[in-house]
Design a protein around this nucleic acid. Sequence first.
DNA 1: TTTGCAATTGAGTCTAAGTTTCAACTACAA
DNA 2: TTGTAGTTGAAACTTAGACTCAATTGCAAA
Lengths: 142, 142
Amino acid sequence: MNKKEIFSSFLKLRGFRFTPQRERVLEEAFSIHKHFEAEDLLVRIRQNGHRVSKATIYRTLALLIQCGLLREVIFGERHSHYEHTLGPKHHHLICLRCGKIIEFTDETIERVQQRVCEKHRFEPSQRRFEIIGYCENCAKHL
Amino acid sequence: MNKKEIFSSFLKLRGFRFTPQRERVLEEAFSIHKHFEAEDLLVRIRQNGHRVSKATIYRTLALLIQCGLLREVIFGERHSHYEHTLGPKHHHLICLRCGKIIEFTDETIERVQQRVCEKHRFEPSQRRFEIIGYCENCAKHL
DNA sequence: TTTGCAATTGAGTCTAAGTTTCAACTACAA
DNA sequence: TTGTAGTTGAAACTTAGACTCAATTGCAAA
Ligand SMILES: [Mn+2]
Ligand SMILES: [Mn+2]
Ligand SMILES: [Zn+2]
Ligand SMILES: [Zn+2]
């Protein structure tokens, strides 16, 4: 099942529709292979000769998160960033000085999550593990 | 060294001043023993018969985070929450339905952080580990 | 002490991400 | 075909938080 099928069946299941605008946002979101923000989608959709309103972009992003194709990541700015959920789960090192984002994976985190959720009878749907500090280069200039 | 000494020496070190307003914010922030937001401080300071402007509250919160007495926590709302850094480091389970926050501790997380930071030569100053999903009660109603 | 000066404050203004509203439009099923 | 419920975009709205600036304060040198 590809992204398009996942999204359209998610929508159909709840009586929502797979509209051209929603498909446009889906396509554009997955043509970016790094972290992106809502504004990026707006600009790129325009550049590709299409038009989807700001409201619809925000509404569609929320749906893509709900259906699990996207995840919201938080980098300490006052607006959201998004990334694909496909591929191995990873987490972030965030540099306070230059804004650099380093991704890392760690398989023990998954076990920690399972243990904690079991203990508290909590049903997880996503997680955030972010270490904030200074990258190698910026640590020198401190 | 108590909070007041930590804060005032942090300020003095950088040529800043330990003013009555900053002391007021410090006191009020530490009289709350749970997560709080900027607005909470404003209201409580007024209720206690004092007055500190919104601008000064935000400015002081930033200083308290810089000096390590407070930490910003993110609960998926569009404004920040804060908590004390004293006591054992803990993390959060966040319920998407009722907003309940469950705190948990896990000693392996610290080791993961050390390992990752060493590998990437990253100088950590804080971290966030948040599991988002549904609490025991809300999972039923899903 | 006085004086000089940088730090600080608060009132008000501004910003911008994201949300809401609503009238027009669309898909679809009876 | 018609009824109904979902969708859209433009514009107005919301709001946390940042910024501006004139007035005030704290401190340290003279
Ligand atoms: Mn990432
Ligand atoms: Mn907490
Ligand atoms: Zn850096
Ligand atoms: Zn709940």
